[in-house]
Amino acid sequence: MRWIWIDTFLEFHSGKSARAVKNLSLAEDYFAEHFPGYPVMPGPLILEGLAQTGGILVGEANDFREKVVLAKIPTARFHREVLAGEQMTYAVDILTLRAEGASVAGKVFVGEELVAEAEIFFAHLDQARSQQIFGDHNFVFSGELKHLLGLARAQATPARSASEG
C-alpha cells in the first residue's frame, strides 16, 4: 500500500509552518471497510497525514539530515467525522525545534471548519546510534516521501516566478 497521506503543499515556511491538502476519494481502499455505505476517514490516518506534514516541516528545517520519527502524540481531539468527497487542510506550526527533536501543533480543517487537532512530538534519532543500526541511508525520507520533499523544497523557495516555469 502506498503510504502517503498528503496530496500537495499549499504553503511551506521553513522552520515555522506548513499547510498541506488531502483530498478524500471514495476510490481509496480503506473506505470499502470503514465503513460499508458510510465512508469515514479513520482518525489514525488523519493523524498520519498531520504527522507527515509536520515531519516534513521538521525534517526540512535541518535539510533532511536528521531521521525524524514520530515519538509521541500528547493530545489529539476529533471534532467531527470526515467523509469521502471532502478535502482536508493540514495546518502545522512548529512549537519547539531543537537538536534532540521537535514538537508541533497541528490543526485539520474542512473548509473553515476545525475537524481535528493534535500536538505531535518528533524525535531526531541519534545520528551515531542510528548509523550503527540503519547505516547512512535515511530510511525516513526515502521513496514516496522524497517526491513530496522535492515539492516542499520548491515551495520553501520564495518567489518562484511563473517565468521560470
Partner: peptide, 20 residues
C-alpha cells in the same frame, strides 16, 4: 521520550533555555 517533552514544555512555560 516524556523527559524531552517535559523539557520542551518547561522551556515554553517559563521562557527559559534548558541545555541538553
Amino acid at each position: 521520550i516524556d523527559f524531552l517533552d517535559i523539557v520542551f514544555r518547561l522551556e515554553r512555560e517559563f521562557g527559559i533555555k534548558i541545555p541538553r
